[in-house]
């Protein structure tokens, strides 16, 4: 097991470096000059010297490779340079918003999994009955409804039912849990719906598959209660593919957050990213993209390790 863990962790490193290279150079093959776009964007006339000064200040006059090495050194020491727009350190801009986004993402994931596993199981066990059809329609709709629109509908519903809007200012959970949850539970629900739909579909199809296995017939034949057959024999094996999807979809969750934070006026990572893109703030964009990719790769790593822990066949391969 230890060898598998070490191997898997080492394999993540080249991917991370690859992501850094692609992110960095993708943003720099742009035709045109970032500083000129920033300073002359509004059609204003700016002298050559001012542009040169700004380039010098941002370190854009150095060769690309040196810039990349500087950025890499920064990444390791968590010194990500300064935002090209506000001038604040990038790590500060990100750090002050990370907590909120992370909380929404984790809440959405928990909600989604708590809903998806029972729904998927029910759907599989009552296959081709009314229960199954209702659940399948709900889950297929989950793939079609944009999470930001669902967020708007939630706000409309809250207004209509309680004439109440979620608070707009963020309160950390440890300061006031109730104020915190009453603000963040709604975006978590909005992005969690799609997530739970995808997971529920996976749970359903993998339970349907497992229930056809020989060992299920054996368990039934030796007189195990149906409830135990499902809970002990089927669920355990059906959860493996579900775990993969839960991990993969976590990345989509971050994507959903980018848009949904806008709906709920949440000042999180997603909103920061959208602002950075609309202001061409490349320093900020590259660090945010890197952060998102790192989260994705880490989640994948955890999934793989979990998989190995749950399924002995994988670590002996």
């Amino acid at each position: 097991m230890l060898r598998y863990v070490v191997n898997r962790v080492l394999l993540a490193i080249p991917t991370l470096i690859g992501v850094a290279v692609v992110t960095f150079f993708m943003l720099r093959v742009v035709p045109g000059d970032i500083v000129e776009i920033k300073l002359r964007g509004d059609g204003g006339n700016v002298s050559r010297e001012v542009i040169e000064q700004e380039r010098e200040r941002l370190g854009l006059n150095k060769p690309l490779v040196i810039q990349f090495v500087d950025w890499m050194k920064g990444l390791v020491t968590l010194d990500l340079g300064r935002s090209m727009w506000t001038g604040n350190p990038v790590s500060e801009e990100i750090g002050s918003r990370l907590e909120l986004s992370l909380q929404v993402a984790v809440m959405a994931a928990v909600i989604a999994v708590l809903i998806a596993i029972p729904l998927g199981t029910l759907s599989a066990l009552y296959r081709d009955t009314a229960v199954d059809y209702v659940i399948r329609i709900v889950t297929i709709a989950g793939l079609a409804v944009p999470s930001f629109w669902l967020g708007m509908l939630i706000i409309l519903g809250l207004l209509w039912a309680f004439n109440w809007l979620p608070p707009l200012t963020y309160t950390p959970f440890y300061v006031d849990p109730i104020a915190n949850l009453s603000q963040l539970i709604w975006p978590a629900l909005a992005v969690g719906y799609r997530y739970s739909a995808v997971v529920a579909r996976m749970v359903r199809s993998s339970i349907v598959e497992v229930m056809r296995e020989d060992y299920i017939r054996t368990a039934r034949a030796k007189g195990v209660f149906e409830r135990l057959v499902v809970a002990r024999h089927a669920m355990k094996n059906a959860m493996l593919p579900a775990i993969t999807v839960i991990g993969l979809e976590f990345a989509f969750l971050i994507g959903g957050l980018v848009v949904t934070e806008q709906v709920f006026n949440l000042n999180g990572i997603g909103r920061l990213f959208v602002q950075a893109v609309s202001r061409n703030d490349f320093m900020l964009i590259q660090s945010l993209v890197m952060l998102i990719a790192v989260v994705f790769i880490l989640v994948n790593l955890v999934v793989d390790l979990l998989y190995a822990a749950l399924d002995p066949r994988i670590r002996y391969r």
Binding site: T23, F252, I285, V289
Partner: peptide, 23 residues
């Protein structure tokens, strides 16, 4: 395939936004 792997580790909207910023 390694290049494809790298591109797959971004959520689609993040990748699309980066391209918007680029172009």
């Amino acid at each position: 395939q390694r290049f494809v792997d790298i591109l797959l580790s971004f959520p689609i909207i993040v990748l699309a936004l980066v391209v918007v910023a680029m172009l």
